[in-house]
Simulated assay, not measured.
Amino acid sequence: MSTASNRQQTLLRKLNQKKYRYKERLFLMEGARAVQQVIANKAIQIQVLFFDKSQRYWEQSDWKTEVDQFETATLSQELFMEVSDTDTPQGVLALCEMPSEVTAEKLAAQSGLTVALDGLQDPGNLGTIIRTAGWFGISGIISGKGTVDMFHPKVVRGTAGATGTIPFMNGELSEVFTVLEAEDWQVFLLDSGAQSQPLHQISSIKKGVIVVGNEGHGLRDELKTANRSSVRIPSPVGQRNVESLNAAIAASIALYDLSGKT
């Protein structure tokens, strides 16, 4: 197996920066199980598999098919640690092509559930939401202003291989919602306020958008219009000892509850 070229090594270093990911339309997927899941999903095109030379994953029997199927190269342990997003990386890294975004009009033509993110900043939260959305088979993900990049290494790692399996777009949420609402989509704003409707009171949904806000500041006021429903996840014990749920946990509960009503 050949060593990664100087050009490849330079590219891997650059892809930790968002501007280079979007310039090259490439991102990195790290970890044996995540990479194998991406291969199995067949939703993402892999250009090259890189292996940590010291770990020699390519010699393991369960990687033989992948080694024969893709272009492969090795990295020194030092370089693998440099481009890795973890302190103790597994010795497999996939260079992947970034999938194309869908349009608001294409999302509007679907049905079921879509998740919209309003300034969500924690990569771990976004990765978990994408992973959960993949489990429930939602129609799409809309990444609004201020939301962390969907192809940030920590986000990609958190999806556990679900990256690319869900149609997605970046855009101003108010504008996207206008397109969706014209096609009878209902917008549900996750809001812990006392005036919000308990989630379990929603009886049925044909086309619904679950909107998750910023971890610290919640949803922007401009999204809270009269034709949109603010919904909350009530605590079963009444008196709560914490102010609110984690954003990813709240989104997961909402997906579980509403997916059974579509």
Rank of each mutant, 00 (worst) to 15 (best):
S5M: 08
R7V: 12
Q8R: 02
Q8V: 02
Q9H: 00
L11Y: 08
L12F: 01
R13C: 04
Q17F: 05
K18W: 04
K19N: 09
Y20K: 00
R21Y: 13
Y22C: 02
K23W: 08
E24R: 08
L26I: 02
L28I: 15
L28K: 04
E30A: 12
A34G: 03
V35F: 15
V35C: 11
V35P: 14
I39N: 14
A40Y: 03
A40D: 05
I46K: 05
V48H: 12
F50T: 03
D52Q: 03
K53E: 13
S54G: 00
E59C: 05
D62A: 02
K64E: 14
Q69D: 11
A73M: 03
L75V: 02
Q77P: 03
L79M: 06
F80G: 00
M81D: 11
E82T: 10
S84P: 08
T86I: 03
P89L: 06
P89D: 04
G91F: 05
G91R: 00
V92K: 06
A94E: 07
C96H: 05
E97T: 09
M98N: 05
S100P: 01
S100L: 08
E101V: 05
A104S: 15
A104G: 15
A108H: 01
A108C: 06
S111K: 14
G112I: 01
L113H: 09
T114R: 08
V115Y: 04
D118P: 07
D118I: 04
L120S: 09
D122T: 01
G124L: 04
T128K: 11
I129Q: 07
I129E: 12
I130E: 12
R131E: 15
T132H: 10
T132M: 11
G134H: 09
S139E: 09
G140N: 07
G140F: 09
I141Y: 06
I141A: 09
I142R: 02
I142C: 11
S143C: 11
S143D: 03
G144C: 01
G144L: 10
K145G: 02
M150A: 14
M150H: 05
H152K: 13
K154D: 09
K154G: 10
K154Q: 12
K154H: 13
V156C: 07
R157P: 06
T159S: 15
A160Y: 13
G161C: 10
T165I: 12
P167T: 11
F168D: 00
G171L: 12
E172N: 15
S174G: 00
E175H: 10
V176Q: 01
F177K: 05
F177Y: 13
A182Y: 01
Q186G: 00
V187Y: 04
Q195P: 02
Q197H: 01
Q201M: 05
Q201N: 09
I202K: 03
I205S: 11
I205K: 00
K207Y: 10
I210T: 15
I210P: 15
E215Q: 10
H217F: 14
G218P: 14
L219Y: 14
R220S: 07
R220L: 07
K224T: 12
A226T: 09
P234C: 04
P236K: 00
G238V: 01
Q239K: 14
N241D: 13
N241Y: 13
N241S: 14
L245V: 08
S252R: 04
Y256E: 09
D257Q: 07
L258N: 15
S259C: 14
S259N: 15
K261W: 12
K261M: 10
K261P: 13
T262N: 07
T262L: 09
